[in-house]
Amino acid sequence: MKRIILYLEWGSILGLLACGLWIFLKLPLETSQGFPQKIMYLHVPTFFSTYLAFFVVFTFSIAYLWKRELVFDQIAKASAEVGLVFCALLLVTGAIWGRTTWGTYWVWDARLTTTLLLFLIFLGYFLLRMSVNDRDKEARLASVLGIIGCLDIPIIHKSVQWWRTLHQPSTLFKVESGAAKPSMPPELLYPLIASVVVMLIFYLYLLLLRLQTEKRRETLNELLAEIQN
C-alpha cells in the first residue's frame, strides 16, 4: 500500500506540473475571456474530483449499511473529507473565475447555491461524526447523511438545464443530434482532459493517504480502549 501511495504521489505531482507547463507555456490565449480562462483548467478538474469523491461516499455508505463492515465507513469518511476540500476549492476557484467573467464573486444562482448546499451538508456530516461517541452509531448516522447529501449531486448537474442560471451549461458533455460534441476547440480541450485525468489520480492519492491515517487512528483507539478495559 505504501508503495502505491508513493507512486500516486509522485505521479500526480509530476502530472500536475506537466499540465501546468502545458497550460501556461503552450496554450494560446482564448479570445473571449483572455488569460483568466486558464482558471478553467483548475476549476473543471476540481469539479470532477468533487463529484467522484462524493460518489465514493455514496457507494461506500450504502455498502456499510448493507454489510456493516467498518472498512467501508472508513473509506466513506476519508473520501468525504477529501471531497469537502475539493468542494471548498471548487467554490473558491469558481468565485474567482466568476469575478473575471461575470464581474462578481458570488450570485445566488442555482448551480452555485446547490454546490454551496453540498458543501454545507458535508460540513454537517463531520459535525455529526464528532458529536456521536458510539462508533457504530456514528458510522450508521453518517452513512445515512452521506447518502442523502449525495442526492444533491444530480440536482447540481441538472441545475443549469432546470433553471435559468448565470452559470454556463455543460461544455464537455454537450450533446448534439444524439452524439457527444464538446463545444471547445481541440487545442483547449486536450489539456482539459489531461488535467481531469491527473486530478482524478491526485484524488486517488489523497483518498489512500487519508484512509491510511484513518486506519491508524482506529488502531490507536482500539488500543486505548483495550488499556482502559
Binding site: G20, G34, F35, P36, L42, T46, A88, T93, I96, L206
Partner: peptide
C-alpha cells in the same frame, strides 16, 4: 501585462497552498 493575471495567480496559489 496580462489582464486578469492576479485572479489566475490567486486561484492557483490558493489551490496549491490548500493541498500542501
Amino acid at each position: 501585462m496580462l489582464i486578469g493575471l492576479e485572479y489566475v495567480v490567486a486561484a492557483y496559489v490558493i489551490w496549491v497552498g490548500t493541498f500542501a
